[in-house]
């Protein structure tokens, strides 16, 4: 999805630049809801092509981190950089336009719009709408079958597919995915995981997920949050919930 820009200069220099500029970088981000200090200095970075999981108990600031990246709840302190550019304080639609998609908690379908209209809203005015629509309809045949149905009539799993499809057609370099498996039957979760893998072939992904084994299975790296800060991070390789450094923060 992104241009690597290696066609002119030498490859080594381009590689070097990619390594030095993460796709997404949060530096000492502090975010409040009114007087409640939710994020208390979050630092994290995401490289292009990665799937990064944000894990931690309820209420530690995972969703708030995603909202801070999109400037839906703008940080009061700290910096959010996307593709090397400081986006802190920009409007949400500008940040989204630069290539960040959001698959929010509870899907947030436009229930009174049809499935196809939900897809249409997500495609920018300068994009090839029909090609993108056909692409997601091919990925998710259920969506094509119910394209003229109002989205509120879809099942939970179908709504999740639509939410992911909506994130995929927006020509995004980064997808913020919040609790995709929440409230879904195990069989449906498998389909959602497949959809996420499909999406991750196209974009970098930050994934908030309560289901720990699922998060470890999907993601390359993880950040563990507690009380609004990152307390652990690293590769997901071989990490299990029994890990002492994880268990301490995840068990109730």
């Amino acid at each position: 999805m992104s241009s690597s820009g290696t066609e002119t200069s030498d490859v080594a220099e381009a590689d070097d630049r990619e390594r030095s500029t993460p796709l997404l970088e949060l530096e000492d981000v502090h975010t409040y809801y009114g007087e409640s200090h939710i994020l208390q200095g979050v630092n994290l970075s995401v490289e292009e092509g990665e799937i990064v999981a944000l894990i931690g108990r309820n209420g530690v600031g995972k969703t708030t981190t995603l909202r801070s990246i999109l400037q839906l709840t703008p940080p009061r302190e700290g910096t959010v950089r996307f593709s090397g550019e400081d986006v802190t304080g920009e409007s949400t639609h500008e940040v989204a336009d630069e290539g960040i998609g959001w698959v929010p908690e509870e899907r947030r379908m436009f229930g009174y719009l049809t499935v196809e209209e939900n897809v249409r809203v997500s495609v920018g005015p300068d994009q090839e709408y029909e090609a993108l629509r056909d692409y997601v309809f091919e990925l998710f045949p259920d969506l094509e079958r119910f394209r003229d149905k109002e989205a509120r009539n879809l099942s939970g799993g179908q709504q999740q597919m639509l939410a992911i499809a909506r994130g995929m057609v927006g020509d995004n370099d980064l997808l913020l995915v919040d609790e995709p498996s929440e409230g879904l039957a195990p069989m449906i979760v498998d389909q959602v995981v497949d959809a996420l893998r499909e999406a991750s072939a196209e974009t970098t992904m930050v994934l908030v997920e309560q289901n720990f084994p699922l998060a470890m299975d999907l993601a390359d790296r993880f950040y563990l949050l507690d009380h609004g800060t990152v307390v652990e991070s690293g590769s997901t390789e071989g990490v299990t919930a029994d890990d002492e450094r994880i268990r301490r923060y995840l068990s109730a």
Binding site: L72, H93, P104, R166
Partner: peptide
């Protein structure tokens, strides 16, 4: 279409890159 979507959930419309204001 943006207006109908915005009537349901303006924040979501904004997050899709549309200037809902």
């Amino acid at each position: 279409l943006y207006i109908r979507a915005g009537s349901e959930d303006p924040e979501m419309v904004e997050a899709l890159g549309i200037d809902v204001r």
